[in-house]
Amino acid sequence: MPVYTCTTVKATLSAETRASLAGELTRIHSMINHVPGTYVNVVFHELAADDVYTDGQPAQPLLINGWVRTGHPEAQSSQLVAEIAAAATRVTGIPAKRVLVVIQNSPAHFAIEGGRVLPAPGEEEAWLQQGQEGGGNAH
């Protein structure tokens, strides 16, 4: 359901660090937004050093852009962004001042996964059950 895209300069994160960060993002999202980890997608995008700038200068931030379904309580969204930012620094060693986490959202019905329109927050259990009865899902 959610998609997290982590953008860095090439060779900033090792394969082991990427795997650890993906695991933490999955754990945090699953815990806070109550969805199975099998639905959490994490993508790493690496750019050339001369393709990333902050304040008009070449930079090496860690940019984490997440998409979630509209409708989660505000407190959950605030907790989600705070815990992801803290985990990013803890796992990667990149200082907090170089980590930017942005969570964007849109209505669940604007997305399809496994051939089915996503459920609104709070309707996951019924959606998962229907997927099992209807032959499963993409995971």
Rank of each mutant, 00 (worst) to 15 (best):
T89H: 14
T89D: 10
T89V: 10
V81W: 05
R98W: 15
G71C: 08
R90Y: 04
V101S: 01
A82Q: 14
V99D: 01
R98H: 12
G71T: 05
L100W: 06
E83A: 12
I84R: 05
T92W: 01
S77L: 13
I103C: 06
S78D: 11
A75M: 07
S77Y: 08
A96T: 12
I103A: 08
Q76H: 08
T89N: 14
V102M: 01
A82T: 11
A86R: 06
A87Y: 05
A88E: 07
V99C: 07
V99I: 11
A86C: 07
E74S: 14
I94L: 02
T89G: 13
I94M: 02
E83W: 00
A87K: 09
T92S: 05
P73Y: 03
H72E: 09
A87D: 06
T92Q: 01
I84N: 04
V102G: 01
H72V: 12
L100Q: 09
P73I: 12
Q79I: 07
A85V: 02
A87F: 02
V102F: 03
A85K: 11
T89M: 08
I94C: 04
G71P: 02
G93N: 07
G71H: 01
A87C: 08
V91S: 03
V99G: 04
V81S: 14
S78R: 11
A96R: 09
R90I: 06
A86D: 04
R90L: 08
R98M: 14
V91C: 03
T92F: 00
Q79M: 14
G71R: 10
R98D: 15
Q79H: 11
H72S: 15
T92V: 11
T89Y: 04
V101A: 00
T92A: 02
A96V: 14
A96S: 13
G93A: 01
Q79D: 12
V81N: 07
Q76N: 13
A75F: 02
A75E: 13
R90S: 09
G93E: 02
K97C: 08
A87I: 01
E83I: 04
E74W: 02
P73R: 07
